[in-house]
Design a protein around this nucleic acid. Sequence first.
DNA 1: ATTTATGGTAAGTTTAAACTTACCGTTAGT
DNA 2: ACTAACGGTAAGTTTAAACTTACCATAAAT
Lengths: 120, 120
Amino acid sequence: MQAFQNYDSAFNALGDPTRRAIFEKLASRPLSVVHIAEGLAVSRPAVSQHLKVLREAKLISMVQQGTRSIYSVNSEGVHAMRDYLDRFWTESLENFKQIAEQTEKQKTKSYAANKKRSNR
Amino acid sequence: MQAFQNYDSAFNALGDPTRRAIFEKLASRPLSVVHIAEGLAVSRPAVSQHLKVLREAKLISMVQQGTRSIYSVNSEGVHAMRDYLDRFWTESLENFKQIAEQTEKQKTKSYAANKKRSNR
DNA sequence: ATTTATGGTAAGTTTAAACTTACCGTTAGT
DNA sequence: ACTAACGGTAAGTTTAAACTTACCATAAAT
C-alpha cells in the first residue's frame, strides 16, 4: 500500500523531544537551519544532526537556496505514518469489542471458561 | 483537543523495532505475555519491560485474568497519535504549496528576491 | 580578492535504553 | 499443602543516541 520505507526510523525520529520540536516548527513554515536552531536549547550542529535523522525518516525535505538549506515537512512521509496508525486503529477497535465481551463473560463465568480464548 | 498525555513517549514507544512487533502482534488479537514473547527474539522479561513502555505511552492496555496478563491495543491512544499526525499533515500540505511557489519564483527571479520570505 | 554567513561532518563524552540472568510473589491446578 | 505456570522487578552490562567543540567547505556580499 505504501511506497514508504521504514516505520521504525519514522517513529523513532518523532520520539525525540528536540526533533518533535523541530518538526512542529517546520510544520508552521519552512525554515533555514539557523532559524530552526534559534529557539531551541541545543547547539546548531545538534540541529543539523537531528535534521539528518528526520530527513532519512522521510518526514522532512530540503531545498538549497544559495548558502541556506531550507527545510520543510514532507507531507508524503507524514501521510504514510498516519495511514499506518489508521490501519491499526481499525484493528484495535475490533479488539476493543472482543475485550468488552471477555470482560462481560468474566463477570458471570469462571477463569477456566475464558482460558481457551486466550490460549494463543 | 486530546485528553491524551505525552506524544514523545508514544512515538518513542513505536520507534523500537521489538516494540513495534509487539504492537502489531497485539493489533491482531489480545495476548498473554508468554504468547507475545513466543515468536520474538528477546527474553520474556524484556517483553515485560517493553509492555510497560507501551502501556505508559497509552498504546496498549492490560486486563488481569487469574495469573495471566492479557494485553491489547489501546485504540484511544492510537487515535490520538493519528490525530496528531493529521494536524501536521494538513499544515504541511499548505507548506508544500508554498515551496512549490518559491521554486517557481526561483526559476525566474534571483535569490535576493526570496531572501525576505525565508528570513525567520 | 577578502570577509562573513551558513551549515555539514568528525571526534569525543555522557547518559540512557535494551537486553540479560536471577529472584520472588501470586494464582491455579493436583 | 505442594507444585507448576505466569509474569513483574532488580541488578548489571553493552551499545547507541544525543550532545558538545572544533574544523572545513561553499556561496554571497563588500
